[in-house]
């Protein structure tokens, strides 16, 4: 691959699959998935449903999922609402401020693909995956709190399958976009790109 050799951690992605390493990976992933702290990035109407999901009826904290104000303290960015062109550079910057490993959940039709504003919205970003890579798409306008919880549970499943100590493979099922040089730190879905 082109470019300098990327920096790898001391034990990260170094080991062949084996019983101990796989169990260690599962333990690490289990602890990470049960404590996802999300950066509350409420942009529009979906933010109200995200707040409702965090409130007492559809509690997210029982899954360990907690809102944080700052991207530096968050694992997950829930993009809840319409991304506009003016906001796009800020979304990218906030994504870059998050520390690895980080995930993105695109909540609502507007963040998925522009939503109801896709046709005549000259200032609407047609999907937040034009600027950042997205892990989970939750459809709805706005998605019900149960739908958002389902998306978060799917994200937990995804995190459980992550390869922390084990080496990444080239042909891991349909995640063929993953590469060995570590440029894709978390296997990304083969989407628009």
């Amino acid at each position: 691959m082109s470019g300098p050799e990327p920096v790898r951690g001391l034990i990260q992605n170094r080991f062949e699959d084996g019983l101990i390493v796989t169990s260690a990976d599962q333990l690490i992933n289990w602890s990470r998935k049960n404590s996802i702290w999300f950066m509350q990035f409420g942009l529009a109407c979906c933010a109200i449903e995200m707040m409702a999901t965090g409130a007492s009826r559809y509690d997210t904290e029982r899954f360990g999922i907690m809102p944080r104000g700052s991207p530096r303290q968050a694992d997950l960015m829930i993009v809840a609402g319409t991304a506009t062109l003016k906001m796009a550079t800020r979304i990218k910057r906030l994504y870059e401020q998050m520390a690895e490993p980080k995930y993105v959940l695109s909540m609502g039709s507007c963040a998925n693909n522009g939503g109801p504003y896709w046709r005549y919205g000259y200032h609407v970003l047609k999907g937040v995956d034009e600027v950042i890579p997205v892990d989970i798409y939750v459809p709805g306008c706005p998605p019900r709190p149960e739908a958002l919880l389902y998306g978060l549970l799917k994200l937990q499943e995804k995190i459980q399958e992550d390869r922390v100590l084990r080496k990444r493979g080239l042909t891991v099922g349909s995640l063929a976009g993953a590469t060995l040089d570590g440029s894709a730190d978390m296997p990304r879905p083969a989407g628009k790109r």
């Binding site: 062109l85 998925n112 693909n113 896709w118 000259y122 047609k126």
Partner: peptide
């Protein structure tokens, strides 16, 4: 007004939907 193609590299015209 006509929608331009791009604004700073981001699509402005409606893109084909999923």
């Amino acid at each position: 007004w006509q929608d331009p193609e791009y604004y700073n590299g981001l699509h402005v015209k409606p893109t084909p939907q999923m």
